Amino acid sequence: MISPAAADALENWLASSAALGGVAENTLTAYRADVVDFLAFMTEHLGQAQGLTALKSIRVPDMRAWMARTRATGVGPRSLARKLSAVKSFFRWLAEREDFDPTAVLSTRAPKFQRKLPRPLDEDSARAVIDTIEMQSQKPWVGARDVAVVTLLYGCGLRISEALGLNGSDAPLPQTLRIVGKGGKERIVPVIDAARAAVDGYLAQCPYPLEPDAPLFRGARGGRLSPRVLSGAMQATRMQLGLPATATPHAMRHSFATHLLEAGGDLRAIQELLGHASLSTTQAYTAVDTARLMDVYNKTHPKA
């Protein structure tokens, strides 16, 4: 059980994160779950509900005990690192308001894990997805909609949440889009002709009126298109094409970045197009490109 004071502090932190940090709703939901699990463990571990006074006295051994218990439940190092990040963010905010030293929590090191490299599609496969996904629906307007979305993901490097978050006021698509991404970070994204044409084709068939404050991409009942629906269409498409399970909607964004890099694109420019806060995130694509080059080298070099 979590004390009322701790529960209030948690909700205030989440509200602050939403208002000031522009944190997405799904991220807030994950933060809440992670911190609640932490506080519940500390209640059991220390034998008392974790009011603010108890939270201020958490020690390094307590943090180690929480991490060990969490790992023992089958949570992997990547997920544990995410949970620890949420707990640290909460304690950093709480310490500023309650004036205590959060070093025991903030100094806890996240477990090491090997970052997964992006799994892009090759250019032919990316084009095949765009050409094939409309076949997964019996309704022509739905097929046109799915083509428009995946074309935006691949042609503009949008996150699926960014594409599905567009409204009627964004149409017809201009030469550039102002996108608000993670953490409220804004970026300008060039819109290729193919993406504008795909969206225009969808709108010409969509049975719902184009309204400024309504979703641009509609579900079957007229509401905002769900990512799960698009993922289902993508799954059917990759099965038809014989593509691996890594061929997801997000893989289209990875493909956008990788293909730009392969064509000689500047890494910092790609960082801006993707909306990455840190260049280190974008640098993962250099590892993908290096792996591709080494594969070509090993297959073609006469002495390989």
Rank of each mutant, 00 (worst) to 15 (best):
D170A: 15
D213I: 02
L117M: 12
T281Y: 01
L84R: 09
G219T: 09
G222A: 11
Q283E: 15
K139V: 10
P227G: 09
E211R: 11
A204L: 07
S79L: 10
T27Y: 07
A15W: 07
A251H: 07
D200M: 02
Q175N: 05
A5S: 15
P140H: 09
D124S: 14
V60F: 14
L117H: 10
A9Y: 12
A110D: 03
A9L: 09
A198T: 00
L166H: 01
A284Q: 12
G181P: 00
R78P: 05
T286D: 03
A236F: 03
N12R: 15
R178F: 01
T258Q: 06
T103N: 11
G157K: 00
A49G: 11
T176Q: 14
S280G: 10
E44N: 14
V35S: 05
G47P: 07
G22R: 05
R59Q: 11
D289C: 15
A144L: 08
R69N: 12
A6V: 07
R224K: 14
P174M: 15
A68I: 14
A40K: 09
A110Q: 13
L84E: 07
A6Q: 05
R119D: 11
P209W: 02
M1K: 10
A49E: 12
R224P: 01
A81M: 08
D122P: 00
V35A: 05
L164A: 07
A245H: 13
G51W: 00
S255D: 03
V36H: 03
G181F: 09
A126C: 13
L52I: 13
P244I: 12
S16G: 11
R71I: 07
M42W: 09
D193F: 05
K182P: 00
R228N: 13
F91C: 10
E25L: 11
H301A: 12
T43P: 10
R218A: 10
R159S: 04
C156T: 01
A287W: 00
A128T: 03
S226P: 02
D37P: 08
V142R: 03
A304E: 10
G201N: 00
V150Y: 01
W141E: 01
H45A: 14
E44M: 10
L20Y: 12
D131P: 02
P190G: 07
P118M: 13
E96M: 12
V36Q: 14
P302M: 11
D266I: 00
Q136A: 05
P120A: 15
R218Q: 06
D193E: 14
A236C: 04
A220Y: 13
K303Q: 13
A15F: 01
H259W: 05
R115W: 07
L117W: 13
E272A: 14
E123P: 10
K56D: 09
A277S: 12
L164D: 03
R69S: 15
A86T: 12
L80E: 07
M67F: 06
R178C: 06
Y202Q: 00
I160N: 04
A144Q: 03
Y297E: 02
S85D: 09
V229K: 09
E98C: 10
M63G: 05
